[in-house]
């Protein structure tokens, strides 16, 4: 058990981690990198089955145990089955009724639903900005002033064009400086985590210490 759950995954991680590092710096191994990358869609294809199994199990359990939320699970389950059936049968009948059903469900149900959720962002941005600006600290006042200048700068005209220049400066100098500082830290963090995993120092992702 220890071998399958700990040692083998750790050994594979070390081997593929070192191989990945070598493939980055040795161009002659590019072909192997392409082969390795081509395995990803295969793995993803199998992993979809895990996702569908988990989704189905979760919603079946919920249908049994939580009658007040049963309706959501039924809708989810019906959507899953209808889309899967329409997609799978439609693949073999180009232009047939199932293809049209799949296309219509995708274009007129799925896409508008996605757009609806995305559009909620506009309202959430307003409420988050309100909370960020109202905190009575000098730093939030600074944020408010710079936010005000940037927003005004984006729609500036006539004498207000000075805000345009100021806005450009805020975006190009202090913002970029902060972002670059963050990116250096993130880059080092990614490197350190990768090295920890490759060297087997970090094993929490395997469930161990």
């Amino acid at each position: 058990m220890n071998f399958w759950k700990r040692r083998l995954p750790l050994a594979l991680t070390v081997i593929y981690g070192l191989a990945g590092f070598a493939m980055q710096i040795i161009p002659a191994l590019n072909g192997y990198r392409d082969i390795q990358n081509s395995w990803m869609p295969i793995l993803f294809g199998f992993s979809i089955a895990i996702g569908v199994a988990s989704l189905t199990k979760y919603h079946f359990t919920k249908m049994r145990r939580q009658p007040e939320e049963r309706v959501y699970s039924i809708i989810t389950f019906i959507s899953l089955v209808v889309m899967a059936v329409a997609g799978l049968i439609g693949m073999s009948q180009d232009g047939g009724v199932f293809t049209k059903l799949f296309d219509n469900l995708f274009s007129y149900v799925y896409v508008p639903l996605q757009a609806t959720i995305f559009s909620l962002l506009a309202f959430y941005i307003t409420s988050a900005a309100y909370r960020a600006f109202k905190v009575s600290e000098w730093i939030s006042t600074l944020l408010l002033v710079s936010g005000f200048i940037v927003m005004l700068g984006r729609v500036a005209f006539g004498p207000l064009m000075v805000f345009g220049k100021l806005s450009e400066w805020i975006m190009a100098v202090p913002t970029v400086a902060a972002m670059r500082g963050l990116l250096i830290g993130i880059g080092l963090g990614i490197m350190a985590t990768a090295i920890k995993i490759i060297l087997g120092i970090e094993r929490s992702y395997l469930g161990g210490e």
């Binding site: 590092f21 980055q24 710096i25 040795i26 161009p27 002659a28 191994l29 590019n30 072909g31 080092l188 490197m191 350190a192 090295i195 920890k196 060297l199």
Partner: peptide, 22 residues
């Protein structure tokens, strides 16, 4: 195929230094 990408020499040296430090 080249056995070392000379354009990555900086990254390589930095990575080796970082690994040694770790």
């Amino acid at each position: 195929g080249a056995w070392f990408d000379i354009k990555l020499i900086n990254s390589f040296v930095a990575a080796i230094f970082f690994i040694s430090l770790i």
